[in-house]
Write a protein that binds this DNA or RNA. Structure first.
Lengths: 149, 149
DNA sequence: CTTGACCCTATAGTCACTTCAGGGTCGATG
DNA sequence: CATCGACCCTGAAGTGACTATAGGGTCAAG
């Protein structure tokens, strides 16, 4: 960990949108390395912790489980690993990412359409949010009010 | 819920990649409406449950909390809501979606680059996975082996 | 009728945080 | 120097979102 930044745990939390308890939790489960301490036993963080924690929070925000986050961090932490071991992991994650992108794009498109509709005085009656992320059935409007499946 | 499909809970689970306990859980917390039952008290699901559950699972997979999922389902369930109330919600969600897409695209780009590197006999030494989802510092390689922050 | 697969409800466990409890440290202020 | 509020510490308990387990019922094929 190179450059010094000397952040307290509270400051790191504010910078990364993370609760201090969560930061301690991540340290406990070794997602984050133990930081330096002051004479008064306060944790002291620098740039690399900021980067690492930001990465972790964003991966979590994107729905990746900690297990996947850990695997990616291991990748980054071990630059000398043979490509053979890494290849499958990278490709798996790549497919997962591409799948999530495709879903998000469909959802974005529908939300954009709804936003535009609202601005131009439309109604929600032809909302197709559910369909944007689900298989297309042979019948049915998403907004059907019957409830019997 | 219009078209009949007559799926058992197990079949619905297989179709949507969801555990039966999770499906019961979602019914309990009213994310999924109660389905019809057989004379033997077995749940019977149709197309609309398939669609709704698929939507829920994908939203969860994309990292949206159940609270957000519920808000979106409410949108879809109430086609006659005034656009005024809905507008802010749609725009908020839209921004969230766009942010997630941007993050995923950066991660995809880095993973693609690594995959290509592995195929062409490269090394992991210049892996920049962490940087793909974190703020760019003034120094530092992601793979620095020092651990003091 | 038997049997294995699946269903039911209720409860407890797991993962990933998040809150609470009790006490210590820090720096500004009087 | 003493006070005080903000923040830090560790450890334990709580919450949300599932997931597994327990005990018993249903179903359909043989």
């Amino acid at each position: 960990m190179s450059a010094k930044k000397d952040l307290s745990i509270g400051a790191l939390g504010k910078l990364t949108g993370t609760k201090v308890e969560t930061i301690r939790f991540y340290e406990q489960i070794a997602i984050l390395p133990e930081p330096a301490r002051t004479a008064g036993n306060y944790r002291v963080y620098g740039h690399d912790h900021v980067r690492r924690l930001t990465f972790v929070r964003r991966m979590r925000d994107l729905g990746f489980p900690l297990e996947a986050v850990r695997a990616m961090l291991d990748l980054a932490d071990q630059p000398d690993r043979p490509c053979g071991e890494v290849d499958a992991l990278v490709l798996d994650q790549l497919h997962e990412v591409e799948r999530k992108i495709a879903d998000l794009e469909r959802l974005r498109d529908e939300l954009s359409r709804l936003a535009t509709q609202c601005r131009t005085g439309g109604r929600m009656a032809d909302c197709r949010i559910i369909e944007s992320l689900s298989p297309h059935g042979e019948d049915g409007r998403c907004c059907s009010s019957t409830r019997s499946g």
